Amino acid sequence: MSTLEAVSVQPGDARGPGGRPTGRRVAVLLAPAVLYLVVRELGLLVLGLMADRWNKDVTKALTSWDGQWFLGIAQGGYDDVPSWLGDAFGRRSTETPLAFFPGYPALVRWLDALPGVTPIGAGFTVSLVSGVVCAYGLNRLGRVVRGGSPRAGLVLVVLFSASPMAVVLSMTYSEATFCALAAWALVGVVERRWLLAGLCCAAAGLVRPTAAALILAVVAAAVVAAWRRDGWRAWVGAVVAPLGLAGYLAYVAVRTGQWDGWFAVQQRGWDSRFDGGAATWKFATMILGEPRSVLELATVWFLVGAIALVVLCARRRVEWPLVVYGVGVLVMDLGSNGLMNSKARLLLPAFTLLIPLALALGRRRTSTVVAVLVGVAVFGAWFGAYAITAWPYAI
């Protein structure tokens, strides 16, 4: 029996004499973690092959670019980051490190304090554990959404962990931690567990600015629920949800002496600001007219695909807070004039847009599901490896 078949067994049917868990029950419990880890291990195996081809060190590739900043902040805090780190223009000021949110490096620093743990090992461990936690959150979402099922939950886990830029889930980047918190915040929304939703959303606000999209979804859903039926818990969730992001932005404002300090640091150091999509449109039309690289051309089509998935979400009547979150992530990505090479990576947290695909595949025969997911996983493994080995620029 395959893992996808095993999950169709109901929990109550999977216990032996005396209520002890049977093998099927254990398989059901472990399936999200196993599938996530298998897909990510495939990605690392392909990365090893690509690294050999391009004479790159795997560990250096997995700790490159923003990963160096996060490790630097984890080791020295904002005031003692290694001096050789600079912004997109090679410059550095006392404010430059503030562009990076503190949640992920704080976890790395706490783990690094344990005996025998290195900073890089701590970074990888936080990303690994966060990814597994995210897998369980996505599995839960795939079960509880409208039309969901145990099989759809597992398919959603695989689609996410095999995404084209899912390689960052294995890097010293903050995406895995953010996605774990976002997934469970949205589980709280769908299940009307507002304290869970609010607390996870607040924590996500300390990890990535993408939390703005999550806050919009959680607060809007909580207010609607409070107005209709859910009472004080929904109001508490709505109040708590923005605290993490608001708190860090306020901290940077005090440190820089500017009310919009974080945005100013981003613009000065990375020329990143919200321009309504003008830069993205210019980039897309230029690349489609005259492709310059695999990564850039693929990035444009990933963005087009994400827009198509929004339409599918609407047609499939996916719960509106999940659509609001996914659209919010997409709008932040499309609307920023920041590094175009990063746009595929910045789509990764928009995992709710994958729900229609998971629901559709969840109803297909096991052989069809396995064939599709294996193909997706192989492509995602290759693309992620290409992005941090053959591609010479930041992602």
Rank of each mutant, 00 (worst) to 15 (best):
M1W: 04
E5P: 00
D13E: 15
G16W: 08
P17V: 13
R20M: 13
G23P: 03
V26M: 10
A27T: 12
V28G: 08
A31W: 02
P32C: 08
A33I: 07
V34K: 00
Y36M: 11
G48L: 06
L49Q: 12
M50A: 15
A51W: 00
D57G: 05
L62I: 05
T63Y: 02
T63E: 08
D66N: 10
Q68I: 03
F70P: 00
F70N: 13
G77H: 06
V81R: 04
S83R: 15
R91M: 09
R91E: 15
L98V: 07
L98G: 12
F100N: 10
R109P: 00
W110E: 10
D112F: 05
D112E: 14
G116F: 00
G121T: 12
T125V: 05
V126M: 07
V129T: 07
S130K: 03
G131E: 10
Y136N: 01
N139P: 00
R143W: 07
R143Y: 02
G148P: 13
P150V: 10
R151M: 10
R151G: 11
R151Q: 12
A152N: 04
A152Y: 02
L159Y: 07
S161T: 15
M165G: 00
L169N: 15
T177N: 03
A180H: 02
A180T: 10
L181Y: 06
V189H: 09
E191I: 01
C200Y: 00
P209G: 09
A211K: 01
A211M: 07
A217S: 14
V219D: 09
V223C: 13
A225M: 13
R228K: 15
R229G: 12
W235C: 11
W235P: 08
A241V: 06
G244A: 05
L245K: 07
L249S: 06
V252A: 07
D271R: 12
S272V: 01
R273S: 14
F274Y: 14
A278T: 11
A279Q: 09
A284P: 01
M286R: 15
I287K: 05
G289W: 04
P291M: 05
R292A: 05
T299R: 05
V304W: 04
V311T: 13
A314E: 10
P321E: 10
L322Y: 06
Y325M: 13
G326D: 11
G326I: 06
G328V: 06
L334D: 01
G338V: 02
L346K: 00
A350C: 11
A358G: 11
A358H: 06
A360M: 11
L361I: 08
L361Q: 03
V372W: 06
V372Q: 04
L373Y: 03
A385F: 02
T389V: 09
W391C: 06
A394L: 08
